[in-house]
């Protein structure tokens, strides 16, 4: 994986002149990518009269980590939240375009956002465990959706979820403690376990490590890496190192526009757009 960002970008800089408006590269160099899980087509988004996204087209493959990067306010979080309709509740938010989840437009009338969010889970910037016990935090999703049919089944779901989130060993003796009593890194893994417990197909992560210390960040990144085998993961991050470490695909947003997207290695080492290169080389953002 690409970890060293001190690349000589001067040579690739010239390329921006060659391919002015190319959004997505041909997937040629990427390993045979799994099926496309989510695809966004012509997504425009407004908050009141302010447009937050401009005509975004992006395909997100399954069992892959896709990183959304860009300077703050570039629309990457907004785009992330369109994928499980978290923007629905925001007053004055309006969306145009299609987002296809397994080929179904999730903004069509017959799609139930409640069911959609169970399938497309989300983890937030600040860990937000409910003020309930560790157990109840994880069991909450299965309970409301009626997934577990018995107490034993629920216990099993909680245990497996916590194990997958790498938290089981730390909390197995204190399942009845309040979720808010855990440390910040533990809380974030608890929240990931909570998301996993409803067996989502996609996990959206909005800067999941930005409120954590480096050690906790490392654990989360490891976890993301492991989860990738079973889930389609989309992660918003402002840290390019993190994007380079955990993702296979990267999409760069700037001022509401998707500038370019492609395999992470390509985007970082060989960006097609001048803006991407400027951002990656630290000239703004």
């Amino acid at each position: 994986m690409l970890t060293d960002l001190n690349l000589d970008l001067s040579a690739s800089g010239k390329l921006s002149n060659v391919a002015p408006l190319l959004i997505d590269r041909p997937a040629g160099r990427a390993e045979a990518i799994a099926e496309i899980k989510i695809s966004a087509r012509g997504v425009n988004m407004w908050y009141g009269s302010k447009q937050a996204l401009f005509d975004v087209d992006l395909e997100i493959p399954d069992r892959t980590v896709t990183a959304l990067i860009g300077p703050s306010g570039c629309g990457k979080s907004t785009f992330l939240r369109t994928m499980n309709r978290m923007n629905d509740a925001i007053l004055g938010a309006r969306m145009e375009g299609d987002i296809l989840f397994d080929g179904t437009d999730i903004y069509k009338g017959n799609v139930d956002p409640v069911q959609l969010r169970a399938q497309v889970g989300m983890v937030f910037q600040k860990p937000n465990p409910f003020p309930k016990s560790v157990y109840d935090n994880v069991a909450y999703g299965p309970r409301i959706h009626g997934i577990a049919l018995s107490k034993e089944a629920l216990d099993e779901i909680v245990e497996i979820s916590l194990q997958k989130a790498g938290l089981w060993d730390e909390v197995k003796d204190r399942l009845q403690d309040s979720g808010t009593s855990l440390s910040g890194g533990q809380q974030q893994r608890l929240v990931i376990a909570r998301a996993i417990a409803v067996s989502p197909e996609v996990i959206l992560m909005d800067e999941p490590a930005s409120a954590l210390d480096p050690i906790a960040t490392g654990r989360i990144e490891e976890l993301i890496h492991e989860l990738r085998e079973n889930y389609c993961i989309v992660i918003v991050t402002h840290s390019m190192q993190q994007a380079a470490r955990v993702s296979q695909r990267t999409a760069f947003f700037h001022m509401g526009t998707l500038i370019e997207a492609g395999d992470t290695a390509d985007v970082f080492s060989n960006p097609l757009q001048q803006k991407t290169q400027d951002y990656i080389s630290g000239r703004f953002g």
């Binding site: 099993e156 497996i160 979820s161 997958k164 067996s199």
Partner: peptide, 11 residues
């Protein structure tokens, strides 16, 4: 299908 023995809900 189920992941590590965890039943995915059949919607």
């Amino acid at each position: 299908q189920s992941l590590d023995g965890m039943a995915a809900p059949n919607w």
